[in-house]
Design a protein around this nucleic acid. Structure first.
Length: 426
RNA sequence: GGAGAGGUGGCAGAGCGGUUGAAUGCACUGGUCUUGAAAACCAGCAAGGGUUUAUAGCCCUUCGUGGGUUCAAAUCCCACCCUCUCCGCCA
C-alpha cells in the first residue's frame, strides 16, 4: 500500500510514477472522493464530540442526583443523525481503501523504463553458455528416457501441470533443496523456518496477493477458507505482522523451503510442456526485514545470496533488472536471475529478488521503534527465491546431460546424493 | 469432535456501565545524586486520524473482529476469529 498521505499530498507525482508501469491512476477521482471523506469526517467527528460531551454531562448530573430528563430530550435525535453520518463516512472510507489496496507500489527511481520483459536490462552474466558436441535434449526427454519423470502418471492423478518424479531424480531435487538451505543458513547467516502452507486471507492481503490476484490462488472451501501459499514469502513475511521491533532486532534474515501452489490462471498455452510451469513446485525462499534506510543495500545482498547458489552449481546465468512495466505489483525494484537452459536455448527465470520497501509493512503493520526519535516507523521487507528448486532441477538436467542420456551430478550436490556422481538409467 | 478459560498500551497486568485512553510494574527517555557506572529518587512516555504553517493546541477513533442494547460500553448481549487447559481421536 502506498502511504495515503503521499497519495493525497503528491497525487500528481504518484500518478506519474505509476504511469511508468502502465498503470492509470485516476487522480482526480481519488481526490474528489477524498474531499468527500474530509467533509464527512469533520461532520461525523463534530457529532461524536457532541455526543461525548452530552453523555458526560448526563453522567455528572446523575451523579449529583439532578433531573436528567431535559438533557435526554436534548440529544434525542443525535443518535440517528450520527449513525447516518458514520455510515456515509464508512462507505467513502471503504471506497478509498479499495482503491489503495488496488494500487501497485511506487517504483524506485533506478528502475529502467520499459513496457514488458523485452525491455528488461541485462546487468551481468556469469559463466559461459554450456556447449555440447552432440544434439542437446530438453529435460523432458532426458527425464522420461531415464524413466524418472512421468507426466502421464501425474495427469492421471491430478491433471495437467503436475509431475511425478521417481528414483534419483526425485532425490536430486531433495538434494538441491538441502544444499540451498545449508548454504543460506551456514554461509549467509539466514535462520531456517518451517511455516504453514495454508494461510488465511489476511496474510495474503499483507503481502499483496489479495484482494487483487485471488484468481491465481488455490482456496479451500471450508467455512473459513484457507489459501494454499503461492510462495513462502507469504507465511514468512507475515512473521512480522502486527509487531513492533526494537532497533537491535533488525535486520532479520529468514529462509524457508516450501512447496508453492499456483493456479496459473491466465497462462494457458504458455510452457504447457515440461516442468517449467507447474501448479505445485518446490522453492527455497529468502526474506529480509530491515530498517527503512537499508533496504536497497539489502536487495543487492539478497540477490548475491541467490547468485551464490547458481555459482556453486556452476550453472550459467544472467542478472536482469526488471523494467517499469515488468516489476511486480508490490515491488519497488526487482532483479531476476535467469539460468541458461540448453534445451530451450535461452535464459529462463529461476529467481526473482525484490525490495518491497514499506509496501507490505504498511499492509501488515510491521514496525520498528526508531532509536533516535523513539517513534514507531514502518520497516522494509524484501524477498527473493534462493532459488526455485524445480527450475534448478531442470537447469541441472539440461546443463549436465551426457550424450548417452545420463546426468552428471554437480560436485556440491554429491554429498547429498550419497557420493554418487552420475544419474543413469537403472 | 466434547468441556472450560481467556484475548487490554513495546511487554506483563488491573479495571468489569458514567469524568478510564485506561491503575501498577517492567522496558524506554530526561533529570537529581555519583569521578564514572549501578542503585535510589523525581519527571516524561500508546497508536492512528482530522483541523492546522506546526513534531503547538483542539477534536475523533482504537481495550481480538463485526454487529446489538444504552444518553453513555474495555465493561452488558450476539456472532465470528484466535490462544491456552483438560478429555477424545490421530501422523
Amino acid at each position: 500500500m502506498i502511504d495515503p498521505k503521499l497519495l493525497r499530498q503528491s497525487t500528481t507525482e504518484v500518478a506519474a510514477n505509476l504511469a511508468r508501469r502502465g498503470y492509470v491512476f485516476d487522480a482526480a477521482a481519488y481526490l474528489a472522493l477524498d474531499e468527500k471523506r474530509k467533509t464527512l469526517q469533520v461532520e461525523t467527528q463534530r457529532l461524536q464530540s457532541e455526543r461525548n460531551a452530552s453523555a458526560k454531562s448526563i453522567g455528572m448530573a446523575k451523579a449529583k442526583g439532578e433531573d436528567i430528563g431535559p438533557l435526554l430530550a436534548a440529544v434525542e435525535n443525535l443518535g440517528s443523525e450520527l449513525a447516518k453520518s458514520e455510515a456515509a463516512l464508512q462507505d467513502v472510507q471503504d471506497q478509498l481503501v479499495d482503491i489503495e489496496l488496488d494500487l501497485p507500489n511506487l517504483l524506485d527511481a533506478s528502475v529502467p523504463d520499459g513496457k514488458d520483459e523485452n525491455d528488461n536490462v541485462e546487468l551481468r552474466r556469469w559463466g559461459k553458455e554450456t556447449e555440447f558436441s552432440f544434439k542437446v535434449r530438453d529435460h523432458i526427454e532426458i527425464g522420461e528416457s531415464l524413466g524418472m519423470l512421468d507426466f502421464d502418471a501425474a495427469s492421471k492423478i491430478s491433471g495437467s501441470r503436475f509431475l511425478v518424479m521417481t528414483g534419483a531424480l526425485a532425490r536430486l531435487q531433495r538434494a538441491l533443496i538441502q544444499f540451498m538451505l545449508d548454504t543460506h543458513t551456514i554461509e549467509h547467516g539466514y535462520t531456517e523456518t518451517y511455516v504453514p502452507y495454508l494461510v488465511h486471507g489476511h496474510a495474503l492481503v499483507g503481502t499483496g496477493q489479495l484482494p487483487k490476484f485471488e484468481e491465481d490462488l488455490f482456496k479451500t472451501d471450508g467455512e473459513t477458507p484457507f489459501y494454499l501459499i503461492p510462495t513462502a514469502e507469504v507465511p514468512v513475511t507475515n512473521l512480522v505482522r502486527d509487531t513492533m521491533l526494537e532497533a537491535d532486532q533488525l535486520p532479520q534474515h529468514y529462509t524457508a523451503h516450501t512447496p508453492c501452489f499456483r493456479s496459473e490462471a491466465g497462462s494457458y498455452g504458455r510452457d504447457t510442456r515440461g516442468m517449467v510451469r507447474q501448479h505445485q513446485f518446490e522453492k527455497v525462499e529468502l526474506v529480509h526485514f530491515v530498517a527503512a534506510d537499508e533496504s536497497m543495500e539489502a536487495l543487492e545482498a539478497l540477490t548475491g545470496h541467490a547468485e551464490a547458489i547458481l555459482q556453486k552449481l556452476e550453472l550459467p546465468y544472467r542478472v536482469v533488472a526488471l523494467c517499469a512495466g515488468d516489476v511486480g505489483f508490490g515491488a519497488a525494484k526487482t532483479y531476476d536471475l535467469e539460468v541458461w537452459l540448453p534445451g530451450q536455448g535461452k535464459y529462463r527465470e529461476i529467481s526473482s529478488c525484490s525490495n518491497y520497501n514499506d509496501f507490505q509493512a504498511r499492509r501488515m503493520k510491521a514496525r520498528r521503534r526508531n532509536p533516535d526519535s523513539g517513534k514507531p516507523e514502518l520497516i522494509h521487507t524484501l524477498n527473493g527465491s534462493g532459488v526455485a528448486a524445480g527450475r534448478a532441477l531442470i537447469a541441472v538436467i539440461e546443463n549436465y546431460q551426457n550424450e548417452d542420456g545420463s546426468i552428471r551430478i554437480p560436485s556440491v550436490l554429491q554429498p547429498y546424493m550419497a557420493g554418487a556422481e552420475l544419474i543413469a538409467k537403472p
